[in-house]
């Protein structure tokens, strides 16, 4: 009895507030747009049963998505932005994680805290901080003009470059922590062995350190890639009107165009795209857990 209550309470909560809402999105993505509020016409009643539902299933919102170039472009450019920023985050994060792993043991807790601290700070504030830096008369342009590297201000804000910077900045801890965890476990004598056996330091790094931190690299990359794909705040504050990301399109479809069926269809496809990296990530985590036990 007690066990039943223990299972039933969180179970019921998640079914009611996670599973059911998601089924509603699925259902609305298959209904017609109407001008009434709420702006959708329910496509079926549960009572009519599954057969009736299948007969009147309506994919017009999905067909609409494939016909309109905007959505294709938005999905592709989200994938592109997420991929490029993941690679950039890895390139920025790896040297930091590597430095942390080689730092004296008594520094490490402090370094660790310094990495985690920004994570507890508001996401919105961290993105906002870059608005003042990247703008036309912002600090970066002031600095570069002052040093004489450039003669006229660069346009960075409202471009994809600003979005890359924003994603790298906000997701950096997610990349550093798993890589640091992998490097920290590594046996330092392996490097010495490689060097004794005639490897140069660079070769030893490439042949020993990188392969041994592979799991951290994979975990970190997924932890950046998956949320970056559906990101809304960064493209909306740092990106311009030409920065297409699917999270932003969904938001606008919903709040500006008030087209709920299309917004729901956009959400369903975004999830389908996310399933692949999520399943891969899960499998990688499982493999790692098995290898450790």
């Amino acid at each position: 009895m007690r066990r039943f209550v223990l299972i039933a309470v969180p179970y019921a909560w998640l079914v009611a507030l996670f599973l059911v809402p998601f089924l509603i999105v699925l259902k609305i993505s298959l209904s017609d747009t109407a001008l009434a509020i709420p702006p959708y016409v329910p496509k079926f009643e549960w009572a009519e049963g599954i057969m009736a539902f299948l007969r009147q299933l309506d994919f017009e919102n999905f067909i609409f998505l494939t016909e309109d170039n905007l959505y294709w472009k938005a999905y592709l450019s989200s994938l592109q932005i997420a991929t490029i920023s993941t690679i950039l985050t890895l390139m920025v994060g790896y040297p930091i994680a590597y430095g942390m792993a080689r730092a004296p043991a008594e520094w490490r807790p402090t370094l660790m805290m310094l990495i985690i601290l920004p994570f507890w700070t508001s996401f919105l504030i961290r993105v906002y901080a870059w608005m003042g830096i990247l703008s036309q008369e912002g600090f970066l342009n002031q600095f570069l003009l002052w040093t004489g590297i450039i003669n006229e201000p660069l346009t960075i804000i409202n471009t994809n470059t600003a979005v890359y910077i924003g994603i790298v900045y906000t997701y950096l801890p997610f990349m550093i922590l798993p890589i640091y965890a992998a490097l920290d476990r590594m046996d330092g004598s392996l490097i010495e062995a490689a060097e004794d056996l005639g490897c140069s330091r660079l070769m030893a790094f490439w042949l020993v350190t990188i392969p041994l931190s592979k799991n951290g690299i994979i975990a970190g990359s997924f932890l950046v890639f998956i949320p970056a794909l559906g990101e809304f705040v960064i493209p909306s504050l740092l990106g311009g009107s030409r920065t297409l990301m699917i999270g932003k399109v969904l938001w606008e479809e919903f709040f500006s165009n008030r087209d709920w069926p299309v917004a729901s269809a956009v959400a369903v496809i975004l999830l389908l795209i996310l399933v692949v990296p999520i399943v891969l990530f899960q499998r990688n985590q499982q493999k790692q857990a098995e290898a450790e036990s």
């Binding site: 599973l19 917004a263 729901s264």
Partner: peptide
């Protein structure tokens, strides 16, 4: 399986989708 799926799925679900689905509910 469904239970553990429902525990892990919201962690990777884009916020826009979670928000949209709850609003519709």
């Amino acid at each position: 399986t469904l239970f553990s799926g429902m525990i892990y799925a919201p962690l990777v679900m884009p916020e826009v989708i979670t928000g949209l689905s709850l609003l519709l509910l």
